[in-house]
Amino acid sequence: MRQIFFDTETTGLAAEGGDRIIEIGCVEMINRQLTGNNLHLYVNPQRASHEDALRVHGLTEAFLSDKPLFAQIADQLLDFLAGAELVIHNAPFDIGFVNAEMKRLGRSPITDTVGSVRDTLLMARDLFPGKANSLDALCRRLEVDNSNRKLHGALLDAELLAEVFIRLTRGQDSLVMDDSGDSAQSAEFKLAALDLSSFALPILQASEAELLAHERVLGELDKASGGKRIWQAA
C-alpha cells in the first residue's frame, strides 16, 4: 500500500476566508516502510500570514516572496499524490485548504485524485478518549522524539506523523530498518526444536554444613509461627 503522510502550513485558519497554503510536506511510505521519496514545497501565498500563524510556522512574507504560486506547483503535487492514501492529522483542515486552492484554479477536489484519506486525529480520539490528541501530545504519549520541533514545519510534521501512525497502528515500534534491510513484517524467526535428552545435567548435593544451616532457619520459622508451619507436616 502506498501512503502519503501529508501536512500544510497556512497564512491563517480560514481557507474560505482567503487564507492560503504556504508550505506542503509529503512523506511516502510503502508497505509500512519509508521510501525517502518525499515532496517538500514552499508556496507564495501573495499575502501576509496572520500574526498568530507566523508565530507558529515562522515563514515570513519576505521568505515566501520568490517561491512559486500554487498554480505553478499544482500538477507536481497532484502527480505525487495520485492514487495514494493520504494520512493527515485533522484531515478536514488540510483537505479544506487544498480544495480551496484547487477551486481557485477551476479544478476538481483533491479527493478525486487520491485513493482515500485517513484522519489520525479521529484514530487517536478513538484510542485515547478524553485525552489531548494533538501531534505533540501523541509524540509524548507514544515516545516519538519531537525535540527538533521548535516551529511547525510541514515536512517535519509529516515525518513525525509517520512515526506516530506506526505506533498508533501497533504494526511495529519504529520506521527504522535493520542493517539487513528486512522489514519488520518479514522478520519471522523459526527456532529448531532442541532435544534436551542428550544433555547430562549435574545434580548438586547440599553439604552437611548447608543442611544444618537450613534446619536452623526452619527451626526459627517454626518458632516464629508458633509451631504452625505446614510444609513439613507429617
Rank of each mutant, 00 (worst) to 15 (best):
R2F: 00
R2T: 11
I4M: 07
T10G: 09
T10I: 08
E16S: 13
E16W: 06
I21A: 08
I24F: 03
I30M: 06
N31S: 13
Q33K: 14
L34Q: 08
T35Y: 01
N38E: 08
N44M: 07
P45F: 02
R47H: 04
S49E: 05
H50R: 14
H50D: 15
A53W: 03
L54K: 06
H57Y: 07
F63H: 11
F70I: 02
A71H: 06
L77P: 06
L77W: 07
E85G: 06
L86N: 07
V87S: 03
A91H: 09
D94N: 11
G96H: 08
V98Q: 10
N99D: 15
N99E: 13
M102E: 10
K103H: 09
R104K: 14
G106V: 05
R107V: 02
I110F: 04
G115A: 06
S116W: 12
R118N: 00
R118F: 05
L127N: 00
G130H: 00
L135E: 04
D136H: 09
L138N: 00
L138F: 01
C139V: 07
C139D: 05
R140W: 03
V144S: 05
V144C: 01
K150M: 09
K150H: 13
K150D: 11
L151F: 12
A154I: 00
A158T: 04
A158F: 01
L161G: 01
L161E: 04
V164L: 05
V164I: 13
I166L: 15
I166K: 14
D182W: 13
E188S: 11
L194P: 00
S198Y: 07
A200H: 12
A200F: 10
L201W: 14
Q205C: 09
S207I: 05
L211I: 15
H214D: 14
V217K: 14
V217M: 14
G219E: 12
W231Y: 15
W231T: 12
W231V: 12
A234C: 11
